[in-house]
């Protein structure tokens, strides 16, 4: 069923000339922006694929729920095609031509279902800015054939009214939270609950995938590490017993010594001069 729809979309070439220009503006780093890190997330249930980049097979038998990458791609335009495993690239079931990858970005390409259940590819710019010490970044992306949802953490709404294909994010205290996804404004649980271990200094990106109608909604997670910051400082002493500095009074003593030496010397000199 799902697969038939997939083919139809490919036949009419619904998704083409996708551009990531907006992504670039948001994430381009000012200095030597040359290549980008690109990950691929598979969020279309029951549909393993081969992934071709510029006609070259890059991922073989890429399975739903898997995350590939990151690939390092130089800034430029790319043709991305998904085929049934083993099939030729010209029989692509979903393709994007001339997708513009900006330099210096971190991008996730999600192959997923639209809100009304059509396969599509959506590029997301990943926020890879540093998080404060002790914090973790949680990013939630609605990439499922489902209506608007709320994401709850510990039973309380964390993100509300999220729609396909949008994301919501927040930097939160690192640790484990129990999260679930409910239909927006209701307590009707669509996905979960699930324990999310949000590791300090990482971004955890959670994709809601699948289809509400087909009852195969699920979560796929991608983690980006290395976003940690050092603590603001290491305060580790208030006693002063180990102080190695020279107390001000010693400077005063040294100054007095200099004055006495110079003054005394001057007196001796004038006395000698007077006697002559």
């Amino acid at each position: 069923m799902q697969f038939a729809m997939f083919r139809r979309v490919a036949a009419i070439g619904a998704v083409s000339a996708l551009t990531f220009a907006g992504v670039g503006a948001a994430t381009m780093s000012p200095a030597y922006a040359a290549s980008s890190k690109v990950s691929v997330v598979h969020g279309i249930p029951d549909t393993p694929v081969d992934v071709y980049v510029n006609g070259k097979k890059t991922l073989d038998n890429f399975k739903p729920g898997d995350v590939a990458g990151p690939l390092t791609l130089p800034e430029g335009k790319y043709d991305i095609a998904l085929t049934k495993p083993g099939e030729a690239v010209d029989k692509a079931i979903l393709k994007v031509d001339d997708a513009a990858v900006p330099g210096g970005a971190n991008i996730s390409l999600a192959a997923h279902l639209s809100a009304d259940g059509k396969p599509q590819i959506t590029p997301f710019a990943n926020d890879v800015s540093k998080v404060d010490a002790g914090k973790a970044r949680l990013i939630v992306r609605h990439t499922a054939a489902a209506p608007a949802v709320d994401v709850r953490a510990g039973g309380k709404p964390a993100f509300e009214g999220l729609t396909n294909p949008k994301e919501a994010k927040a930097d939160v205290a690192a640790g484990t939270v129990k999260a679930d996804v409910v239909l927006a404004g209701t307590d009707t649980v669509a996905i979960g609950p699930a324990d999310l271990n949000l590791k300090e200094g990482t971004a955890t990106i959670v994709y809601a995938i699948g289809s509400a109608d087909a009852k195969n909604l699920d979560l796929v997670a991608q983690t980006i590490s290395g976003l940690h910051s050092a603590p603001g400082g290491v305060p580790s002493g208030t006693g002063g017993q180990a102080g190695t500095g020279v107390d001000t009074w010693w400077y005063v003593l040294a100054g007095a010594g200099v004055l006495l030496l110079v003054g005394g010397g001057a007196r001796v000199a004038t006395a000698r001069a007077g006697r002559r």
Partner: peptide, 20 residues
């Protein structure tokens, strides 16, 4: 290493991260 395709591209199951 992956089965075939580009060996430089790591593929991971997108399972929810567990405590290390």
């Amino acid at each position: 290493t992956t089965a075939s395709g580009d060996p430089s591209v790591p593929v991971n199951a997108g399972t929810l991260p567990a405590a290390g």
